[in-house]
């Protein structure tokens, strides 16, 4: 095998980590919405925040293969952290709130991860659910801080960069959320291409194999769990800020379930599944639950069952199967087929 063929194989192998032109699409769409549909900016900001939350769950479920029911625990923890910081401590600078939410999410993540990740399968599912319900009950009881069942209101955020107020037109919160999402995406895009990111995917595929080449599986899982938790905390803090409200629903099983559904809809472990699944979910919900929310639940359930039985990988999975043949770089694939014949 000559060296140029080798080089093209290596290139084809490394290609996944490089940016592709189509990756500009989500950002282009976001920009178009900002200029063309100003009436949707409030809704749009919520979609963007949810994408961050879904991304953090994809990191955990899709890339690391750790299936939990309790991911909303970190989202809620981040939301309450940002909310309490603002209402009780009077610190209402947005970026400080985001930082605190991220740290609180990460700390709750590492502490619970130390316990939860010792287990697998059903025990892990239930431990994660128990953690979520535990936090929800704690938030419910600590009403002096959290507002209990009434929710935490009275958050009034300081202007962004000391200049831009969170207005009713949604412009500021939209751009704010978009900026945070962009940073998160950049971070994930980079992280998943690092040796650490690839080793986490390796652990998902076969933890025994990764241990057999010397990886400390437990420690890497704890690391990715903490990162995912911190990102969920960030999303929660952002959600609290743009809503200027935190409720117990942010610590609910239903929310964990909703994010799982979005992920399944868009496509698991594809990064862009979150970008596609979230708007589809919001639009479908809006459209289908207009007449009667019952129908929405019914169709959503049916869709989930159908995805599992017939369309694993969600929308992006279907697309990928369609375009699957186009993956190899032409040079490498033709050279390889020559080498084979």
């Amino acid at each position: 095998m000559n060296s140029s063929l080798k080089a093209s194989i290596i290139d084809a192998h490394q290609r996944r980590d490089r940016l592709h032109p189509y990756e500009v699409l989500p950002w282009l769409t976001a920009a178009l919405i900002f200029f063309l549909f100003p009436q949707f900016l409030n809704l749009g900001a919520h979609v963007l925040v949810t994408i961050i939350f879904v991304l953090s769950m994809d990191l955990l479920i899709g890339y690391a293969g750790i299936v939990t029911l309790g991911h909303a625990a970190f989202y809620g923890a981040g939301a309450y952290a940002a909310g309490i910081l603002c209402v009780s401590a009077g610190i209402n600078e947005p970026f400080t709130g985001l930082a605190v939410g991220t740290i609180v999410g990460g700390v709750v993540g590492i502490l619970s991860g130390l316990m939860i990740l010792r287990t697998r399968g059903l025990a892990l599912l239930i431990l994660s659910l128990a953690l979520l319900l535990l936090l929800q009950e704690a938030a419910n009881q600590a009403s002096a801080w959290t507002g209990g069942a009434d929710g935490l209101s009275g958050m009034s955020m300081a202007p962004l960069f000391g200049k831009y107020r969170f207005g009713l037109d949604g412009k500021v919160i939209y751009l704010y959320s978009l900026g945070v999402l962009f940073v998160c995406w950049l971070f994930l895009r980079m992280l998943l291409a690092t040796p650490f990111g690839r080793s986490v995917v390796g652990i998902r595929e076969n933890a025994v194999r990764m241990a057999a080449i010397g990886a400390n599986v437990r420690r890497r899982e704890l690391a990715i769990f903490t990162i995912a938790a911190a990102m969920a905390g960030l999303a929660g803090a952002l959600a609290a800020q743009i809503d200027q409200f935190v409720s117990l629903n942010m610590l609910s099983f239903e929310l964990s379930g909703m994010v799982l559904v979005i992920l399944a809809l868009g496509g698991v472990s594809r990064l862009y599944g979150a970008f596609l699944g979230t708007p589809v979910f919001f639009i479908a919900q809006d459209y289908l639950s207009k007449d009667n929310p019952v129908y929405w639940n019914f169709w959503l359930g049916l869709l989930l069952v159908a995805i599992v039985l017939f369309a694993r990988g969600g929308v992006l999975g279907i697309l990928a199967r369609g375009f699957g043949r186009m993956r190899l770089q032409p040079a490498a694939s033709s050279a390889l087929s020559q080498a084979r014949s």
């Binding site: 980079m190 992280l191 291409a193 690092t194 040796p195 650490f196 990111g197 690839r198 080793s199 390796g202 990764m210 080449i213 010397g214 990886a215 400390n216 420690r219 890497r220 690391a223």
Partner: peptide, 16 residues
């Protein structure tokens, strides 16, 4: 991945 683990860079969360 085996080579990377052997070289002790498997846990590196920075681009390499």
């Amino acid at each position: 991945l085996a080579v990377l683990e052997r070289e002790r860079v498997g846990s590196r969360p920075l681009p390499a």
